[in-house]
């Protein structure tokens, strides 16, 4: 291979990897998405986290998840912004502030968020943060308010242990 071809190849590889690394999928979360996600992640543990750009407690909780993310990589985090049509810049801002690493995330794509609240839980009126824990038997535990780190770590460790005994 000639020298210039070698350089071109290296540059191409560099650009393609940078491009891939800087990508996050933003998916619309609408009425019905909750059921779809439960189906998509059925029979595996996962955590569904709802947040808002105006919720300081949410940022604290997401930062806590970020710290534990590397330790429990087999438990997917499904992170959903409840601000209708939240700008990408706000999503990126959240990722930067919290240190969370996501391949994909969701944003409410319904002008009237209460319709989604009711679809997710009939008694939810928009209080945040709210976190849903699903185990591999699809059992759901819903927690309103910021999650206690110890309880969170215990739950994640238990799920990780079941996946990789």
């Amino acid at each position: 291979m000639g020298p210039f071809k070698l350089i071109l190849l290296a540059v191409f590889l560099f650009i393609s990897v940078v491009s891939k690394a800087n990508t996050i999928e933003i998916r619309p979360f609408v009425k019905g998405s909750f059921a779809e996600l439960k189906q998509e992640y059925s029979n595996q543990p996962f955590v569904l986290i709802f947040w808002s750009e105006s919720c300081s407690y949410c940022m604290k909780e997401l930062a806590m998840f970020a710290k534990l993310q590397g330790k429990y990589p087999d438990v997917p985090l499904v992170v959903v912004a409840t601000d209708p049509f939240l700008d990408e810049s706000e999503v990126k801002g959240m990722l930067e502030r919290t240190g969370l690493s996501l391949q994909k995330t969701w944003v409410f794509a319904e002008q009237f968020p209460e319709r989604i609240y009711a679809d997710v839980h009939k008694r939810w009126r928009g209080e945040l943060p709210v976190t849903h824990f699903f185990d591999q038997d699809n059992r759901e535990v819903r927690h309103l308010g910021i999650v206690k780190q110890k309880a969170l770590e215990n739950w994640l460790a238990a799920q990780q242990q079941l996946i990789n005994p």
Binding site: A21, E25, I26, R27, S101
Partner: peptide, 10 residues
């Protein structure tokens, strides 16, 4: 984990 993606697709 711990590193930040910065570009989005939909």
């Amino acid at each position: 984990p711990g590193h930040k993606p910065v570009k989005s697709v939909h």
